Simulated scan of single mutants.
Amino acid sequence: MDRPSEELLGEKVGGRFVIGEFVAGGSFGSFHFGTDCQTQTKVAIKLESKESLQPQLHIEYMNYSILGRAQFIPIVHYFAPCGRNESWNALVMDLLGPSLSHIREKCGGTFTVQTTINLMIQLLNIFEFVHLHGILYRDIKPENFLLGMSNNNYWSRVHLIDLGFCKRFIDSHNRHIPYVEGKLMAGTQRYVSVNNHLGRELGRRDDLEALLYMIIFLHKGQTPWQGLQGTVLEKSRQMVKIKLEITPQDLCSSMPPEFASFAKYVRRLQFAEMPRYREWWNRFRLRLGSMGFSSYEDHYLDWDRSHNSRNNLR
């Protein structure tokens, strides 16, 4: 795990941002709270050693730069070397609220149907935007989607983070990358697509299939392929078998029919085919409207402005 020495804590990077408390770390580097000395606001700072075997922070910064400013992408304030002998890279961006994983746990381990549909609408919007910029995300899991800070105007808005694992699917000549096989799996097994398990080159369809599996997990608190025993390879083989054989109706049982229809749709998409994001965005919005809610309202979500659970919705 990349974790900077204590002497790096309190250092000012970019002449403006002070590195604060260590929060978490892993193969990606380390995450810290920080402070913007000009505005006295809190920021998020990711640090990665230049000696990392598989450095990703520069890739993440590049992808943030490609996507630019969007309401569901955190603003990046700074990226450059820091520390003694400039042995670390620092990425400074907006500090956000809890992840979908954390808020799910606070809400009892599952989300209501209306909250699940709201999330689906937001996430379809995010992935349409990311894909239109020629980027595949490839690392879908609840920990990588964060709400805005509590008690501000963005408390219910989902934001996409951790772009270091993304891949361009459009080349420098504006052509789609070719289909190949024999690839290593990318992402978290629980959520990856069937094609990902089978070593096939990923496309936009695979981001959407993984998105569906994550949504099912958030709504039900589990997926049909959890709790498998064996080695990583054995569990992967069992998992892909279940994903291939389960019907969309069984996969999306207890959920509105749009989810089973979406499951059928994404599995039929061709490798280079552009998904019809707006069509599905509208279908989920209509379903939410038929339940008496609007995707522009927040009062029915399973959490409030302070990111506390609203148990009265259950």
Rank of each mutant, 00 (worst) to 15 (best):
L124E: 10
L124W: 00
N125A: 11
I126P: 02
I126W: 09
F129W: 00
F129N: 08
V130L: 06
L132W: 05
H133F: 14
H133I: 01
G134L: 05
I135M: 07
L136Q: 07
Y137L: 03
R138I: 01
D139Y: 00
D139K: 00
I140T: 04
K141Q: 13
P142L: 11
P142E: 15
P142A: 11
P142G: 14
N144C: 07
F145A: 05
L147T: 02
L147R: 07
L147N: 10
G148D: 13
M149I: 06
M149G: 07
M149P: 01
S150F: 05
N152F: 03
N153S: 12
Y154D: 10
Y154E: 12
Y154A: 12
S156F: 04
S156R: 07
R157V: 08
R157G: 02
V158R: 03
H159Y: 14
H159D: 02
H159A: 07
L160Q: 04
I161H: 02
I161W: 00
D162K: 11
D162T: 04
L163E: 06
L163R: 03
G164D: 14
C166F: 00
C166L: 04
C166D: 02
K167I: 08
K167R: 15
K167A: 12
K167D: 13
R168E: 03
F169G: 09
I170L: 15
D171W: 05
D171H: 04
S172C: 07
S172R: 12
H173G: 06
H173T: 03
N174R: 15
R175F: 00
R175E: 08
H176N: 13
H176V: 01
Y179F: 13
V180G: 13
E181A: 08
E181L: 02
G182E: 11
K183R: 09
L184V: 05
L184D: 13
M185E: 09
M185T: 05
M185W: 04
A186I: 09
A186G: 02
A186D: 12
A186N: 12
A186W: 03
Q189Y: 07
Q189E: 10
V192Y: 13
V194S: 13
V194L: 15
V194N: 06
V194M: 14
N195I: 02
N195P: 04
N196A: 15
N196Y: 00
H197I: 02
H197Q: 08
R200V: 10
R200A: 10
E201R: 01
L202E: 15
R204A: 12
R204S: 14
R205C: 14
L208S: 02
L208I: 01
E209D: 03
E209A: 03
A210I: 00
A210K: 06
L211Y: 05
L212R: 01
M214E: 07
I215G: 04
I216F: 09
L218F: 05
L218Y: 13
L218D: 08
G221V: 13
Q222T: 13
Q222E: 12
T223D: 06
P224G: 15
P224W: 01
P224M: 09
P224T: 10
W225F: 01
Q226Y: 03
Q226N: 08
G227T: 09
L228M: 11
G230L: 05
T231E: 06
V232C: 14
L233E: 14
K235F: 01
S236I: 00
R237W: 09
R237C: 11
R237K: 15
